[in-house]
Nucleic acid binder design. Sequence first.
DNA 1: TTTATAATTCGACATATTTCGAATTATAAG
DNA 2: CTTATAATTCGAAATATGTCGAATTATAAA
Lengths: 112, 112
Amino acid sequence: MSNYKTIEAGQLVNIFKALANDHRLKIYTILTRCCTSGTLCTSDEASRYCVGDLDSQLDIAPSTLSHHLKELHRAGLIHMKRDGKQVFCSVNTEIMQQVHTIFSAKPVGVTQ
Amino acid sequence: MSNYKTIEAGQLVNIFKALANDHRLKIYTILTRCCTSGTLCTSDEASRYCVGDLDSQLDIAPSTLSHHLKELHRAGLIHMKRDGKQVFCSVNTEIMQQVHTIFSAKPVGVTQ
DNA sequence: TTTATAATTCGACATATTTCGAATTATAAG
DNA sequence: CTTATAATTCGAAATATGTCGAATTATAAA
């Protein structure tokens, strides 16, 4: 009935599953920080990190990181794009917006 | 440095863990719906459901529901208060507000 | 006090998740 | 073509989570 965007309940639970892990939440947090605190930033200049750069901040095996990135990607939380030998990751700001909406209003914007 | 409220990273992961399950997300969604769609509602009149009422909507054993409610409560997402033989549950709107904040701005409001 | 109702705790079992190392794929450089 | 670098896939092992039924606790009613 409503004409604003909603997240389907099944997808929402996958989003929470994806963020329900220390390493994945840290990855998402790193990708979410696009600029230094106190500086200005526009919403669409999300930061890009290649997998190797993330790995250096995480103390887990590359295969484990790869698995976690796949989970975040499956949930639609991040973008992944190969550029030469490297794969670059960035947040999906659109999904971020929608999750934001869910926590903002009652009744919640979830279709069942 | 900032003087607005933040959620500590460890708590945040527990919040996501709590919501990362079909049954628990449904419980939270039920509690979040304080009024019928289209009617007015003020933010602090969150609905109260007793455990038995939730159970009738969920198709799980009472012991399982009890376990899930404990998880939601541990994460700080819901309040639980006994009134006679029954225990009534309602959302913690303050936490809801804080999670909302996390998805609204970059850099995110998480202390590490 | 005894009985009934509401909810929780406990222990056991099944399923899912996390993690790693080894092997593999993708790409670029020599 | 061969070698090096970046990342992924696969299989196995350890840990965590979800589920139930039986027993227990809390409260109210008879």
